[in-house]
Amino acid sequence: MGNVVYGMHASMDGFIEGPDGGFGFTEPAEDVHQAANDQVRRCGAFLFGRRLYEAMEKPWTEQLGQEGAPAVEREFARLYKETPRYVFSDTLQSVPDGVTIVRRKDAASVVERLKREVDGNLEIGGAELAGSLVDLIDEFLVYEFPVLVGGGKTYLPVESEVRLRLV
């Protein structure tokens, strides 16, 4: 049975992107990158919103992880490519092998099915996708970076109060 996990890098004031849309402040140190690799080993599938998918796909399948890159990056690229990826989008028309397009209207039913069928964590990537599926998320992770950016895209955009249970 899959466990839906939403984890994102964020500033200490709760933003995953700064006011200019940049997220360079989340560049991980090697030990943080190694922790991400360890997390991906427990991952049964990635569930991405379109924008995060586009930010991740090409770099990790074509550019990063190449000869000469740090070992931690090469390992992440290998793990990334081996993990099934689902991109939730109404605009994408095609994706490479290893990636499945899910239309937004089908999002909840697909995630519920994946929870039943996939062993390992179902890692949600993308604040808007997580906000739309908040009732299906089993675990929230915030990887806080020691920076204040003063505005931008929040870690989890929701329209009303959502009560959570601390575990």
Rank of each mutant, 00 (worst) to 15 (best):
V134T: 13
M1D: 03
R41S: 04
K81A: 15
G131F: 10
V167G: 13
A10W: 10
Y80A: 09
N3R: 15
L79A: 10
F15D: 07
G65I: 02
R78Y: 10
D138P: 04
E62F: 04
C43P: 01
P157Y: 13
S109N: 14
D13Q: 12
V134W: 13
Q34P: 00
L164S: 02
H9N: 15
D135P: 05
G14Q: 10
R165M: 08
E123V: 11
S89H: 01
R42D: 07
V32L: 00
R51L: 11
P157D: 12
T91N: 09
V118Q: 15
G125Q: 07
P96S: 13
V4I: 08
A45C: 03
E112Y: 04
S94E: 15
A108W: 04
A55V: 10
L47E: 00
K115W: 13
P19C: 14
K115Q: 14
V40S: 02
N3A: 10
V32R: 01
D106K: 11
E57A: 09
G126R: 12
P70F: 01
D31A: 06
A45Y: 06
M12Q: 05
Y80K: 06
P157M: 11
S89A: 00
I137E: 03
Y143T: 06
P84Y: 12
V149L: 06
L141P: 07
G68Q: 10
P84C: 06
R50P: 09
R50L: 04
A69I: 01
G151I: 11
L52F: 13
G120L: 12
D135Y: 10
R104S: 14
L166V: 13
D31T: 03
T83Q: 10
N3F: 15
I16G: 10
V110Q: 08
P59I: 07
G24V: 12
K105N: 12
T26A: 14
A130P: 05
G44L: 02
L156I: 11
S94F: 15
R165C: 06
K105D: 11
K58M: 07
D90I: 02
E27I: 06
A69C: 05
L148N: 00
G14E: 05
R104Y: 11
L136D: 01
V110Y: 09
M12P: 01
G98M: 02
P146C: 03
E54C: 07
V102D: 03
D13P: 00
V167N: 14
V5S: 00
A108C: 04
N37G: 01
R78T: 12
K81V: 12
G151K: 14
V110W: 09
T100F: 04
